[in-house]
C-alpha cells in the first residue's frame, strides 16, 4: 500500500489498483465544521486537477480536485448522513471516494508523508 499527498491537501491510498481519496487532517482543520459533502457519481471520469467533489462548511463551499486521472469506482455513502466524519476521522472513515487510475505513474508526482508534513509546516 502506498500513501501519497497532494498540494491541495488530499491523501491518496493506493492498493490493488484502486486509489482511496480523502482530505487531510490539515484540510479539515482549516475548513472547520463540515456540513455537506457532494461526491461525484460512480463511473464519473476524473482529470487530474479537475473538479471532483465539493465540501461545505457552515461558512463556505470548497472544491476538492482530482489528484489523479481515473474513474470513480465507489463513493463514501456514509458522508451523506454524517458529513462530520470528515472532521472526526479525515484519514480513515471520512474518506471521499475510490478511483481506478488511468496512469499509475502519476502517483510518483505526489508527495509522500514526510514531504507533505514539510509542505504543511512551510505554509
Amino acid at each position: 500500500m502506498t500513501k501519497k499527498f497532494s498540494q491541495e491537501h488530499e491523501w491518496i491510498e493506493f492498493e490493488d489498483g484502486v486509489a482511496t481519496v480523502g482530505i487531510t487532517d490539515y484540510a479539515q482543520q482549516s475548513l472547520g465544521d463540515i456540513v455537506y459533502v457532494e461526491l461525484p457519481e460512480v463511473g464519473k471520469k476524473l482529470t487530474k486537477d479537475g473538479d471532483a467533489a465539493v465540501v461545505e462548511s457552515v461558512k463556505a463551499a470548497s472544491d476538492v480536485y482530482a489528484p489523479l486521472d481515473g474513474e470513480i469506482v465507489e463513493i463514501n455513502e456514509e458522508l451523506d448522513a454524517n458529513p462530520a466524519l470528515v472532521n472526526e476521522a479525515p484519514e480513515a472513515e471520512g474518506w471521499f471516494f475510490k478511483m481506478s487510475l488511468a496512469d499509475e505513474s502519476q502517483l510518483d508526482e505526489l508527495m509522500d508523508e514526510a514531504a507533505y508534513k514539510e509542505f504543511v509546516e512551510g505554509l
Binding site: G32, D33, V35, S57, V58, K59
Partner: peptide
C-alpha cells in the same frame, strides 16, 4: 476573529 477553537458550529 472569524472563529475561535470551539468552531463556527459549536459557537453558534
Amino acid at each position: 476573529p472569524v472563529q475561535y477553537p470551539l468552531g463556527v458550529k459549536g459557537e453558534h
